[in-house]
Write a protein that binds this DNA or RNA. Structure first.
Lengths: 226, 226
DNA sequence: TTTCCGTTGATAGTATTACTATCATTTGCC
DNA sequence: GGCAAATGATAGTAATACTATCAACGGAAA
């Protein structure tokens, strides 16, 4: 399988971590660490010890740990965006494209050999538990001006396009898609940690059930034939 | 207007802040401060200076600032829960009840004179920007065992009951309600800070439009007559 | 071959945060 | 008037989130 690189916004890092060995090491080691410690428990100090480097070196790539988190989450959205593009471009029917996108969003993520340094399973858990934190800050407007959320917006726009093609009269395509994207993660989190908040916790296959839930409310909203 | 008190879970605080003057002061001052500084920028040190007390005194009420945030958000959910109960118990029709609940969830919050120490407008902004952080932590399971999220669960359960009454066959009442509750806040945040993610940003009345968006996807999901 | 530039490492230092501990003082109430 | 509970005052600590400086190394250009 071909080894690929996703191109991300330059502002996410001070120096492109995909361009050097040390940069790759930062990405590679930070994913399992954030997954295990949680973002609040994760520090550059701990990361530097784990990867046998120094705090100072890490700071040469990322201004702070928040930027590193934004980078990782952005990578994830870019990855999803790419896979949706890849798996829908040959489909004729917009409803089929939408359906395929919803499947990709909700399915349990597994290792993608095209990106050997990234543990997509761990990264997907990070996205579930930490992704909202990248914009729920007081600097959200400045970060947005720097284009840090472009990846998420692109993904949203692309899926919203499918929605519009299925029903050009539906008045809330973007709102519906962001709801779906956020819900996809939230319901998985609830199923695991606050099970009384969702029926997914009772399912033998929560991911499949999540897909059914999200597909049903989207199809019903845009009056599509399921 | 009668001055009321909402009864919250004892585990939220070390000592009930509603039982003393100092406790009330903590609540009263922390709301505008978290609103303005954001939860990350807010500290007990700053709060103690603002309210002319000491860090040590605040720690006698709340183990840490995270608990204080959970307390405030829990108060908000209890307040909403109470108002939904209050404004629906006389209604005969379950669909009317659901509709009233959705209106209360989505409407712009204004000062409630029944609770003179709480600035509900500021608190509502805190809920929009910070509420997810109360459970998106590594201690979520322990916190949940202590019952810290009871308020949110109760609210969810009560609205889910309306959904079930409208359509007993709908398979995801709780998932649908948590989606609505989360979306209600998220879309308002997006409209303000990441406007390309939602159509609400184009509306002259984003709150009203939010209500329409959420009502439409709920009604369509449970096949109710709008 | 030498020079030099860019990358990394090593180390030190700082302000702030998130607490904990101790003791003194005040306040209400029996 | 005495006692306990609440609060204030103060100090201290480990960790965090950086910033700064200088040395070492390695490869490319002159």
């Amino acid at each position: 399988m071909t080894v690929l690189q996703l191109r991300l916004n330059d502002n996410l890092s001070l120096k492109d971590p995909q361009s050097t060995e040390l940069g790759e090491k930062i990405i590679k080691h930070s994913i399992p660490m954030i997954d295990q410690l949680g973002f609040e428990g994760f520090t550059f100090k701990k990361l530097s010890i784990e990867m046998e480097s120094t705090e100072a070196s890490i700071y040469r790539y990322f201004e702070n740990k928040h930027r590193l988190l934004v980078y990782l989450i952005s990578w994830y959205w870019a990855w999803l965006d790419y896979r949706i593009e890849y798996e829908t471009h040959h489909l004729k029917n917009s409803l089929q494209k939408l359906d395929r996108a919803l499947k990709l969003i909700t399915e349990k993520k597994i290792q993608d050999n095209s990106f050997p340094d990234i543990d997509e399973e761990a990264l997907a858990r990070i996205v579930v538990a930490e992704s909202d934190k990248i914009y729920l800050t007081k600097q959200v407007d400045e970060d947005n001006k720097e284009g840090l959320f472009r990846g998420y917006k692109s993904l949203c726009k692309n899926i919203a396009r499918f929605v519009k093609e299925v029903n050009p009269d539906y008045p809330f395509p973007h709102a519906l898609v962001t709801t779906a994207l956020e819900t996809a993660n939230q319901q998985i989190f609830f199923a695991e940690h606050l099970p009384s908040l969702t029926e997914l916790s009772e399912a033998s296959d929560p991911y499949g059930r999540n897909y059914e839930f999200i597909r049903s409310f989207i199809y019903n909203s845009i009056n599509a034939e399921g």
